[in-house]
Simulated scan of single mutants.
Amino acid sequence: MKGIDHLVLCVDDLDEAVARYRAMGFTLTPRAIHPFGTMNQLVQFDGSFLEILAVRAPTEVPEHGAHHFSFAAFNRDFLDRGEGFSMLVLDSDDARADQQRYVKAGISRFEPFDFQRKAKLPDGEEVTVGFSLAFAAHEAMGRAGFFVCQQRAPQYFWKRDYQLHPNGALGIGCALMLGEEPKAYADFFQAFTGEEPQRLADDEIAFSLSRGGVRMFSPAAWARHYPAALAPDLAEGPCFAGFVIEVSDLGRTAEALDDGHIAYLRDGGRLIVAPDEAFNTTILFEERR
């Protein structure tokens, strides 16, 4: 069973976004430079992470090809219409096998993509990490990207020092999407995740994964589940609306948000950071059960 590997959070100004996430009580990794015109810093957990991404050098961004999905071009174009949660990434033990499966299922026409970059360890040592990616796409979800990521040097990537957060964050609970007719996308998500839906209704679908999960709501279902959270506009089709962060203690999380002067709402057993505080993305903090 696959799990969430990471979420891509696309921003205009990486310095500003990193400062905001630190103010929320997250620890961030040092800055990393991609060889295709983007850069990032990560909020790392045990087995998953948030990738805060910005375009560094637009002239270095490769364009999409007939059988090539350009990660950098997708996020560059995403930013033309605003910041936000742009891509959902699952883990992979074999990106090439996943790509073949996606092609067979009719949700991809792309070749796998391999790349390396430098990373800085907590002690300051610089090492090389590598990744193999396999992309999937749905023509009606042009503002939502999907791929799996196989790590080539995990011993250098995952570091406990980066996974300790003052706000008590433990991991990604769920990726949240919004769409007018969620059930119409169930076959795509089943092919992408390799799992059958745990909930399948006209206004809501849900897929449980080994780490986290994926849920898509209609606007009415979103209002039913998250009445205090602002739903994004669907003028350009289905989109990622936000994500759940599991924490050890909501009181500790609230203290971190207060200390960082981050506005939030209390909604029953969760704290909600609204899109205007989190770069067009809703963040819901919930205690891990």
Score class of each variant (00 low, 15 high):
201 A>S: 15
217 F>W: 13
209 L>E: 05
152 R>F: 03
174 C>G: 06
173 G>N: 03
201 A>D: 14
155 Q>W: 08
153 A>I: 02
196 E>P: 06
198 Q>W: 01
194 G>W: 07
182 P>T: 02
187 D>N: 13
179 G>Q: 00
160 R>Y: 14
192 F>C: 12
152 R>G: 11
215 R>H: 07
167 N>G: 03
208 S>L: 15
166 P>N: 09
212 G>I: 11
205 I>Y: 00
158 W>H: 08
173 G>P: 02
178 L>W: 06
152 R>Y: 03
159 K>E: 15
155 Q>R: 11
186 A>C: 13
158 W>P: 04
163 Q>S: 15
154 P>A: 09
171 G>W: 09
212 G>Y: 10
160 R>T: 15
203 D>W: 01
159 K>L: 10
192 F>S: 12
213 G>K: 00
184 A>N: 08
172 I>H: 04
191 A>V: 00
171 G>V: 10
208 S>W: 10
187 D>C: 11
171 G>L: 09
211 R>C: 00
164 L>M: 14
163 Q>V: 12
168 G>D: 12
209 L>C: 09
188 F>A: 09
209 L>I: 08
169 A>Q: 12
165 H>F: 04
210 S>K: 13
205 I>C: 00
179 G>M: 01
217 F>A: 11
172 I>E: 07
166 P>M: 09
165 H>L: 05
194 G>C: 07
166 P>E: 09
203 D>P: 02
155 Q>I: 06
188 F>N: 08
174 C>V: 10
210 S>D: 14
158 W>L: 09
162 Y>W: 12
183 K>P: 02
185 Y>V: 12
177 M>R: 07
193 T>M: 07
189 F>A: 03
154 P>G: 07
195 E>Y: 07
170 L>K: 02
163 Q>Y: 13
178 L>S: 10
170 L>Q: 04
199 R>W: 09
156 Y>G: 06
154 P>Q: 09
199 R>F: 10
157 F>A: 07
154 P>H: 08
208 S>I: 11
206 A>I: 05
207 F>K: 03
180 E>Q: 12
215 R>A: 09
184 A>H: 10
160 R>I: 14
204 E>Q: 10
180 E>Y: 03
159 K>D: 12
174 C>Q: 14
168 G>F: 12
204 E>G: 00
200 L>W: 12
197 P>N: 11
193 T>F: 06
201 A>Y: 07
192 F>E: 12
211 R>T: 01
207 F>G: 05
190 Q>A: 15
182 P>G: 02
173 G>A: 04
170 L>M: 02
189 F>H: 08
192 F>Y: 15
213 G>F: 01
162 Y>M: 02
173 G>I: 01
202 D>A: 15
209 L>G: 07
156 Y>M: 01
180 E>C: 01
190 Q>M: 12
181 E>S: 11
179 G>T: 03
180 E>H: 10
172 I>Y: 05
178 L>H: 08
207 F>S: 04
173 G>Q: 02
209 L>S: 07
200 L>P: 11
187 D>L: 13
195 E>G: 06
197 P>F: 09
168 G>S: 12
173 G>R: 02
202 D>K: 13
157 F>P: 06
189 F>K: 03
158 W>V: 09
167 N>F: 02
190 Q>S: 15
213 G>L: 00
157 F>Q: 08
155 Q>S: 10
163 Q>H: 13
172 I>D: 06
171 G>S: 13
161 D>P: 12
213 G>H: 00
176 L>G: 04
